[in-house]
Design a binder for these strands. Structure first.
Length: 417
RNA sequence: GUGGAUGUAGCUCAGGUGGUUAGAGCGCCAGGUUGUGGCCCUGGAGGCCGGGGGUUCAAGUCCCCUCAUUCACCCCA
């Protein structure tokens, strides 16, 4: 088509019936979160740029090349949020909260990336954050929420990957160990990794290039370099996950792209999405709060991509509500028929009417094609008698009923339909 | 940001070496049944061949550019 204006690259329009799947999924997410004691928080679509640069890390890919940053009319540097965690922590402080809070949000995020299936420039995710406690119990509960949500949505074969990347006490030592291991092989590394070696050695483990891949096998493992406190934290988390019945596997190569993570990092993945198989990623971030200049605040959270989840779910999802198709026999009766439709809708039914003058036959055909279970015919006889002729498209049975009984009958609370 | 693939009807796709009015299946609309679906039959509508430029007597077909989608990388949800 076109000379017509198109939507920006990497964005999506959501129309029926896709939007119904979104409503269903978002409502399930809210239910799961609220049952677990999480309250919804909504944060601004854009924030001061430094909120993200100071927390995610200047050297992170997100900050370096993926942010939608602009200057507003007042000369401020603002950025469309690339993630929500930093915003939620900021909001916690700005609302003068204290103690433990469990918050979730469902909102869109923006990253300037090359789009492909399951990776958009604007994407939506469910974020859950537990703030104000560094106990492994919080990590376990949080992972449990992600697990419950994905299970209830209908995802099978979930894999939870788990690792600990230590804290301020032990991570410096681990970084040195990595550097010492990799330095003799410097020339074998790809250019990216040669840079990472000095700036952010943990990310060396992320690289999937062949040459770098080969070196990973012998690389020192974070878990072998944890300080006693971090070891204890990880051990307790594992025990809790065992007790809860959540299966997980250690992934010594799992590190995160954002600098603010400490200790626990995890991802939940599913096999059916190609390179974008991670449905959910998260971890603990006990130093993030200080990075934005606030008082210390422990926290653990995750982001869960909803587009990816919907792709994974395929056609699974919401069962359709009972709907009635009101067919009209002649144009002259459309007014009275519309009045009838409005009355039926008021009684709780979802009622559809034809908006083109089409034959009764065509109306039936469309009702059948679009999956309606029942058609009510409205013609001269019905107008006079007040009784609607209702035909079941499933078994072909037909009966005549007063309008006020239809809602109950279609819902199956009363026999006869 | 890097590399590859694709872009023809609403959808899925055909259209050897450029050559008259661009095709199929499904879908859609109408009729066969003048108040009734699914099956069947008949008829019909619908394409600036993603966009722009170039080569040529002639371009859906060749060349360049561009936009979009897709796969992998990068990274991440």
């Amino acid at each position: 088509m076109l000379g017509v204006v198109q939507r920006p690259r990497g964005t999506a329009d959501v129309l029926p019936p896709e939007s119904q799947r979104w409503q269903w999924l978002e409502s399930l997410a809210r239910q799961v979160c609220e049952r677990a004691g999480f309250g919804e928080v909504r944060t601004p679509t854009f924030e001061a740029t430094e909120l993200f640069s100071r927390t995610s890390g200047e050297s992170s890919d997100v900050v370096q090349k993926e942010m939608y940053t602009f200057t507003d009319q007042g000369g401020r540097s603002l950025t469309l949020r690339p993630e929500s965690t930093a915003s939620v922590v900021r909001a916690y402080h700005e609302a003068s909260l204290s103690g433990v809070h469990k918050l979730f949000c469902i909102q869109s995020h923006f990253r300037y990336e090359r789009p492909q299936r399951g990776r958009l420039r604007e994407h939506h995710q469910l974020d859950c954050e537990i703030l104000g406690t560094d106990l492994p119990l919080a990590d376990a509960e949080l992972i449990g929420v992600a697990w419950s949500f994905l299970s209830e949505a209908g995802v099978e074969d979930l894999t939870v990957s788990l690792n600990s990347i230590g804290d301020l006490t032990c991570r410096p030592g681990y970084r040195r160990a990595l550097q010492e291991y990799y330095r003799p092989h410097r020339e074998e590394l790809c250019p990216d990794c040669q840079r990472r070696l000095e700036i952010n050695p943990l990310r060396l483990l992320d690289c999937k290039r062949e040459g770098c891949q080969a070196l990973k096998a012998g690389a020192p493992k974070s878990r072998d370099h944890l300080c006693p406190a971090c070891q204890e934290h990880l051990g307790q988390l594992c025990l809790l996950l065992d007790q809860v019945g959540i299966r997980y596997r250690f992934d010594d190569l799992l590190v995160r792209g954002l600098d603010y993570y400490t200790r626990t990092v995890f991802a939940v993945s599913h096999g059916a999405l190609g390179a974008q198989s991670d449905l959910c990623g998260g971890g603990r971030y006990d130093q993030l709060s200080e990075a934005i200049g606030a008082s210390p605040l422990a926290g653990v959270g995750f982001g869960l991509g909803l587009e990816r989840l919907l792709i994974t779910l395929g056609d699974g999802g919401a069962p359709p509500p009972p709907r009635l198709y009101l067919a009209v026999t002649e144009a002259a009766l459309e007014g009275p028929a519309l009045a009838m439709a409005i009355e039926l809708r008021r009684s709780g039914l979802s009622v559809e009417m034809e908006l083109l003058h089409r034959s009764l036959k065509a109306q039936f055909r469309r009702a059948d094609k679009e999956g309606f279970d029942h058609v009510a015919v409205f013609g001269e006889e019905e107008r006079r008698s007040g009784l609607l002729t209702v035909r079941s498209l499933r078994d072909g049975t037909e009966g005549r009923y007063p309008a006020h009984e239809l809602a109950e009958r279609l819902a199956g609370r009363r026999s006869g339909l």
